[in-house]
Computed example of a mutant assay.
Amino acid sequence: MNKSLLFPRLSLYILLWKTVTMSTEQLLSVDYEVYGRVQGVFFRKYTQSEGKKLGLVGWVKNTSAGTVEGQLQGPATKVRQMQEWLKTTGSPQSRIIKADFSNEKEIENVEFKDFKVVH
């Protein structure tokens, strides 16, 4: 076989393998609520930005109790990364006390088109 054809073909196979393996990753849906100094510090904006960066969909909103709550949906590894971000990072001015996660379930398809801030 011609060596000049081998590497482009190998690259194509690797790309196809990555596409197939990424698309078979389990999708998760999980609800969250974050406690602490999370209102008035752009927490929702940063949450939306981080979620989009990770390729997740869902929503985020302030609650009357002074917390932030929402739902995440997407590939399991990305949902786990976002959960860690919600527990430990947040927005620069936020002070997170804790983040609770509930209603975690495997889903066939995501239910949202993007990641929204809900008012």
Rank of each mutant, 00 (worst) to 15 (best):
V34F: 05
S23K: 12
Y46D: 07
V30M: 03
T67W: 10
L15E: 07
Q48H: 06
P92K: 14
T88F: 10
T24A: 14
S102F: 05
W17E: 12
K18F: 14
T19V: 10
P75E: 14
E33S: 04
V34H: 01
A76H: 11
K61N: 12
K61Q: 13
K78R: 13
K52W: 02
A76N: 06
V30R: 00
S49G: 06
G90P: 01
G70T: 02
N103C: 11
A65D: 15
E69G: 02
S23F: 10
S23H: 11
V30P: 01
T77R: 13
S91I: 06
Y35T: 04
D100C: 05
K105F: 05
N62S: 14
G36N: 02
L72Q: 00
Q39R: 02
R80S: 13
G70L: 02
D31M: 00
E25S: 08
S23R: 12
K52L: 15
W17M: 11
L12R: 11
G58N: 03
E69I: 11
R95F: 15
L27M: 13
V38H: 03
F42S: 12
A76P: 01
G55E: 11
T19F: 07
P92D: 11
T24R: 14
S49T: 07
V41M: 09
K45Y: 15
Q93T: 04
G58F: 00
E104D: 06
E84L: 10
Q71N: 15
Q48T: 08
G74Q: 02
L86G: 00
E69L: 11
V68P: 00
E50D: 06
P8K: 03
G90K: 01
K53S: 07
E104P: 00
T67P: 00
E84H: 06
G40N: 03
G90N: 03
M22I: 10
R95C: 11
T21A: 13
G70F: 04
Q93H: 06
S94Y: 03
K53F: 08
A65V: 07
G58R: 01
Y35W: 05
Q48N: 04
E84M: 06
M22W: 09
M82I: 07
W85K: 03
T89R: 09
E25I: 15
Q83R: 08
R37I: 09
G55S: 12
E50S: 07
V79W: 00
P92Q: 12
L6S: 04
E69R: 12
P92E: 04
T24E: 15
D100V: 06
V60C: 11
K45F: 14
Q26Y: 08
K87M: 13
Q71E: 15
L54E: 14
V30D: 01
G36R: 03
G40K: 02
S91G: 01
S11W: 13
Q93G: 05
S23G: 07
G55W: 12
W17T: 08
K61H: 13
N62D: 08
Q93V: 07
S94T: 04
T88Q: 10
A99H: 03
K52G: 06
S91T: 03
Y46P: 00
E84P: 00
V79C: 05
L6W: 05
M22Q: 12
K87N: 05
